[in-house]
């Protein structure tokens, strides 16, 4: 019979926050693009850290464990936001497309992250690992447990969507 899981103490949570909190917040900010939402997600990540402390302790990479949880929390926020309100192109693209913008100025990464909520969770995960973490196809396959072929397909899908979204943004803004 195994003992029930042991949760982290307040001191351990404080120590984890002191060491990793800024990284988790940074990640949440980049996924959610809203400071208040990122702050909220950071707290949620640490609520789960508190609850699943034994899994955190056992994790080979604490950062990877926290990032996985952060991604889930952020995807939930994105899903809830999307349920509440579908943001139109011209509104979400305003900060990307300014006067004088050209196609190349809008990086795939910015577009994909801007419209992350439009993708399903598996695609979101690949997008975050590729565009935020800078992982290669092989590394993404290893991190997710999916085949490299699946990862390649999803990255191709993301690149295609980014191109279409870019075109739509530019046509909305009237840029050449």
């Amino acid at each position: 019979m195994s003992d029930p899981p042991v949760r982290l103490t307040k001191e351990e949570v404080a120590e984890a926050y002191g060491r990793y909190g800024h990284l988790v917040l940074r990640r949440c900010s980049r996924i959610l693009r809203r400071d208040d939402a990122a702050e909220d997600a950071l707290q949620e990540v640490f609520v789960r850290l508190w609850r699943y402390g034994d899994a955190f302790r056992a994790a080979e990479s604490k950062v990877a464990w926290l990032y996985r949880v952060a991604d889930r929390c952020c995807f939930d926020v994105l899903a809830r936001d999307r349920t509440r309100r579908e943001v139109p192109f011209d509104e979400t693209g305003a900060e990307l497309v300014s006067e004088g913008s050209d196609r190349r100025a809008i990086e795939d990464r910015e577009i994909v992250l801007m419209f992350l909520s439009r993708f399903d969770d598996r695609v979101k995960e690949v997008a975050v690992l590729h565009y935020l973490d800078g992982l290669t196809q092989e590394e993404i396959a290893a991190a997710t447990g999916w085949s490299r072929q699946t990862v390649v397909k999803k990255l191709a899908f993301l690149a295609d969507r980014a191109e279409k979204l870019r075109a739509a943004l530019l046509s909305t803004s009237g840029a050449p």
């Binding site: 990284l23 950062v63 990032y67 935020l132 973490d133 800078g134 290669t136 590394e139």
Partner: peptide
């Protein structure tokens, strides 16, 4: 190194 690796490195992970 990828951002992920650098971030891990920064906190001795």
């Amino acid at each position: 190194p990828s951002n992920f690796i650098l971030e891990r490195f920064s906190v001795n992970d």
